[in-house]
Design a binder for these strands. Structure first.
Length: 316
DNA sequence: TAACCGTGGCT
DNA sequence: TAGCCAAGGTT
């Protein structure tokens, strides 16, 4: 690692870092929640949700003692709902195994649900100043470009990331600076090499070949779902809870049946997920709900998937 | 190991 | 505009 590169990056970060609420604290609970929210999720999406979380659950203890439904409700709309369940489970683990205090050992942080090496590295460096690297999408892209190795696998990238952070004085700022560079200047589609503080130390400067960085495309499968709507003025709407695994696990929806074939009618709504395109066909022809579920006077207290919200807005 | 898991911003 | 993809982890 070039020391000049290190200095240049840190000077740039000192001047250009975005002011983000989770950068104003070293409190592990706050950092932890921010890191989970930010997994595969853009800063702009997290910003309006971050502070509200702590109004709902001011402490880890409050989170641990909340119901699973309340936690999912607080996560509603953020996607990847397993993350909310992991947070809940981890909060309970912190209560029982660590006396309610977020663990300060890297290995213990890694044991918590939903926290892998990169997230643990971030939390540990931000809260406890350990020299533990982060290797998120930003850092991977920056490192691959610095060394002009677009095909490099995670194993080598982890070595490079760890080697890099060990030359820094402040591991927390180093990790933040690497992510900030990737998120702003060294962006995926159109890197701004002319604005890059480390352009003189980058093997790909001004000739980044985006075509070599393309990921393998995800296959999007079309599925057709009948959405059984039971709505009545006295009882409200009938909702049932999704199973523990799969799409929208644990969330509440009207009963859904998967159709074998694409029906003749047009879907009332199409909801696009990463690997699925959900074609939704509302049906109000049946009179009495059957199976598991409950009448709810209002959907307000329940965590519903965004696609179902959209459908209900259209139909009702 | 590779498939799976959401949503919204960006170009 | 429609596709790409973002502060990944789990199984």
């Amino acid at each position: 690692m070039s020391s000049d590169r290190c200095k240049a990056l840190l000077s740039w970060y000192a001047l250009h870092a975005r002011k983000l609420p989770w950068r104003e604290t070293t409190d592990p609970y706050h950092i932890w929640i921010s890191e989970i929210m930010l997994q595969q999720t853009q800063v702009k999406t997290v910003l309006p949700r971050y502070l509200g979380w702590f109004e709902a659950f001011p402490t880890i203890e409050a989170l641990a003692s909340a119901s699973a439904d309340d936690v999912l409700k607080a996560w509603e709309g953020l996607g990847y709902y397993r993350r909310a369940r992991f947070i809940h489970r981890s909060a309970q683990m912190i209560q029982s195994d660590y006396d309610g205090r977020f663990p300060n050992e890297f290995d213990d942080i890694m044991k918590l649900s939903g926290i892998g090496r990169s997230t643990a590295g971030a939390i540990s460096s931000f809260c406890f100043s350990t020299f533990t690297a982060v290797l998120d999408g930003n850092v991977k892209r920056v490192l691959k470009r610095w060394y002009a190795k677009p095909e490099t696998g995670d194993k080598e990238l982890w070595l490079l990331a760890q080697q890099a952070i060990e030359t820094a004085d402040d591991p927390a700022i180093w990790n933040q600076a690497m992510m900030e560079l990737g998120a702003t200047v060294c962006s995926a589609k159109s890197p701004s090499c002319e604005q890059c503080p480390v352009q003189h130390h980058c093997a790909s400067a001004f000739h980044v070949d985006i075509s070599k960085e393309i990921r393998k495309p995800v296959a999007v499968l079309d599925v057709h779902w009948r959405i059984h709507l039971f709505i009545c003025p006295e009882k409200g709407i009938w909702l049932s809870q999704r199973p523990d695994s799969g799409i929208w696990a644990g969330l509440w929806t009207p009963p859904i049946t998967e159709l074998e074939e694409c029906p003749e009618q047009e879907p009332a709504h199409i909801h696009q997920l990463t690997h699925r395109r959900l074609h939704l066909y509302p049906d109000q022809s049946e009179t009495e709900p059957r199976g598991d579920g409950r009448w709810v006077p209002s959907i307000e207290g329940y965590a519903l998937p965004t696609g179902i919200h959209h459908l209900l807005e259209k139909v009702i």
